[in-house]
Design a protein around this nucleic acid. Structure first.
Length: 224
DNA sequence: GCGACAG
DNA sequence: ATCTTGTCGC
């Protein structure tokens, strides 16, 4: 698929935050409610410990109806920014963009490993990827980040709102009975209800949605 | 002011 | 994210 040119990459936290603030108004909070092709995005780090620079970015496209793999791409690269909570996207975006660019099909929804609107400046990785590609995107986090929430009921499908600065920015969603919830939020061109519905539908068996699990596996075990 | 802080 | 064994459960 075709992806827009990445702008000059920020060198400092101040520049990165300015980019987020400038792109933030481009986020759209409504859009399609069904999707034929769904892509999972993930990055695996390998190299120098906590200062690890080497990474592998993976994108796996699934048929949303059957959850069969349609196409997968893995690319090696380097982290493009130091790890700073809230500026996470600047680490992996270049590598993810290159992987997306090598796809021969265009996904209808991007499922990102991280947050979207539930972010200190309301512009997490899922928003950033969505705005850059113009595609609907959502974020799935494994641990709480910003905001407050109550634990959802133990049954699959139960959820509670995540409230930050007086606004609902996401949901803690139970994808499997008795298993820790995941934290979902809008990225781009999707409603929060659609985000919830899609993540639940894409997680028939495990805690994390199938596209993200597939991408995680590919990033860890690329086929040379 | 201090601590906490997606991956 | 990663460093790491065994253990419990399906």
């Amino acid at each position: 698929m075709q992806i827009p040119q990445l702008e000059p990459w920020p060198d400092t936290a101040e520049e990165a935050e300015a980019v987020q603030d400038r792109l933030r108004p481009r986020v759209e909070l409504s859009g399609p409610t069904s999707f034929a092709l769904v892509a999972g995005l993930d990055v695996h780090y390998h190299g120098t410990g906590s200062g690890g620079e080497e990474l592998t970015a993976a994108v796996v496209v699934l048929d949303a109806a059957t959850l069969d793999v349609v196409e997968q791409v893995a690319v090696r690269g380097k982290a493009a920014f130091p790890y700073v909570p809230g500026l996470f996207a600047f680490r992996e975006l270049p590598a993810l963009a290159e992987a997306l660019g090598r796809l021969t099909v265009t996904p209808d929804l991007l499922v990102c490993d991280g947050y979207g609107l539930a972010h200190p400046r309301g512009f997490g990785l899922a928003c950033h990827v969505g705005v850059l590609t113009g595609l609907p995107a959502l974020g799935v986090g494994k641990t709480p980040f910003v905001g407050a929430h109550e634990p959802p009921a133990p049954e699959r499908g139960a959820w509670t709102p995540i409230v930050h600065d007086g606004a609902v920015v996401g949901r803690a969603l139970r994808t499997q009975r008795g298993v820790k919830p995941v934290y979902v939020s809008q990225g781009h061109r999707v409603s929060l209800d659609t985000v919830t519905e899609q993540v639940l539908r894409l997680s028939p068996r495990y805690r994390l949605p199938e596209p993200v699990r597939r991408a995680d596996h590919l990033a860890r075990h690329p086929v040379p």
